[in-house]
Structure formats: C-alpha cells, structure tokens
Amino acid sequence: MKGGGNALPRRVMVVADPTRESAGALQYALSHAVLEQDELILLHVENPCSWRNTLSTFLRRPSQSVSSATVATFLEGGAGDHVDFLEEMICACNVAQPKVHVRVEKVPMLQGREKAATILFQSMALGVDVLVIGQRRSLSSSILGYKRPGGSLRGTKSIDIAEYLIENSKCTCVGVQKKGQNAGFVLNSKTHKNFWLLA
C-alpha cells in the first residue's frame, strides 16, 4: 500500500485498544499503510468494561524491521497498570513516522449500539479513507463467519468486529493479524482474504 510521489493526503484510522491485535494493526499501518502526507487517527471506543486491560498485553517481541521494532519497543516499554496506552502509541508513531500528523479520537460507545457500529459511524463522520483494525481469528470464526440473519450485531458476543467492518465500511478496511516475531501479517479486506504480507 505504500507509495510515493504526488499521492493525495489520506486519513488513515487505526482502532486503538490495549491489546496485541491493536498493536499489530498499528505496526502494519506505520510500516505499510501510512504515507508522510497522511493523517493518522487513533480511534479508541471507550468501554468501562475494557479498562482492566493493561499495556502488558501488547506485543513483547519486536520484529526486525525498523518501524516495527520501534513500535514494539515503545508498546512494550512501560507495562505498568497506570501507563496510558494511547500516549505510548503516539510516541511509537512519532518515532516510526515523524512527519505523519497523528491525532487521537476518544469516543464513548454510542447509546444502543455495539462497538462495531460506533467505529463505523466514526469512520464515516471523519471522512476516513483507510480503516485498520487488529483481528483475532479462531478456527470457529474462520469456518462459521460472523454473519447473522438480518446483519444484526445484537444478541451475540461471538461477532467478529473486524469482519463486520470489512463488509460494511464505505472506505477500505483492513483486518490485520500479526504473525509471530518476524513472520509478517495476515490481511483481510473485501478483495483479499488471508493475504500474507511479510514483515
């Protein structure tokens, strides 16, 4: 996805949570999706139930590429309970891509909506061009998928948020799975399923 020249500035949004999946999504965005003239938006959907997660759930082994190593080093750096993971993500962005403008959007879960619907709404409201989300796929979700009759998100905890966003986003949406220390990424989008990208 990287390129150069006279490309128009884009808004790239990464769903930011204190999870390994989110760290992998940020690594992918910084190393493969964001260009110097782009704006990077870190979107965190605030959910009181999720604040028990700490920075210690981030990736612990940096990969060998410069940007990924930089990101992983920052993200594993202060694994205490009181560390603001968004601040750590911003620091990682500033080191890996110093010319990219980074901003944070913290939004509450929309009343009566699920997290996926809140992310979808924000991506449209902010005019996002590329949406990047960390994805954890189990064998059952790969076989059974996320779809339910009527496309509703309500009434189930097994919804794959990334799959929902990939299918319903107006912009390009990429689900990212970080594979091991140096193994790269597995990407999912509307046009590519389980696409392996080396680090």
Results as ranks from 00 to 15, higher is better:
A116W: 01
F85C: 02
K99F: 15
S67P: 01
I133G: 04
A69T: 06
S123D: 03
E88Q: 15
M124Y: 02
R103C: 07
A125L: 13
V95D: 15
Q64E: 10
R113T: 05
V83F: 02
S140K: 13
D81K: 14
L120W: 05
I119F: 05
Q97W: 00
A69F: 11
R61H: 09
V71Y: 05
S140N: 11
F74T: 04
V107W: 01
Q97I: 00
V132H: 08
M89Q: 15
L126W: 09
S68A: 10
Q97T: 11
S63C: 14
L110W: 10
R137K: 13
V100N: 04
R113H: 15
A72V: 02
A116R: 03
E76G: 07
S56C: 06
F121P: 00
I90L: 13
E114P: 00
V95H: 14
E87S: 09
I133L: 14
E105N: 07
R103T: 08
L131I: 09
Q135V: 08
R61I: 12
L131R: 01
P108Q: 05
L131V: 09
N94P: 00
A116C: 09
V95G: 02
V102L: 11
V132K: 07
S63A: 12
M124D: 15
L86H: 03
L126Q: 15
A92H: 10
V102N: 06
G127T: 09
R103H: 08
E76T: 04
A72I: 02
L120H: 07
S138I: 02
P108C: 06
R137E: 10
H101Y: 02
C93M: 04
V71I: 11
R61Q: 13
G127C: 06
L139R: 14
H101I: 06
P98E: 12
P62A: 10
M124L: 12
L139C: 04
D129S: 12
E105G: 01
L139G: 03
A69S: 15
A117F: 01
V107P: 00
L59F: 01
E105S: 08
A116S: 11
I90V: 15
F74R: 15
A79I: 06
R103I: 01
A125W: 07
V102W: 11
L59D: 07
E87F: 02
P108D: 09
S67A: 13
L110A: 10
G77N: 09
A96T: 06
K106L: 12
V100F: 07
Q111M: 13
G78T: 06
L110M: 10
A96Y: 11
V132P: 02
E114T: 05
P98K: 12
R60W: 12
L126A: 09
Q111W: 08
R137C: 04
C93F: 10
I119V: 13
A92W: 14
R113Q: 14
T73I: 01
G77S: 13
R61F: 07
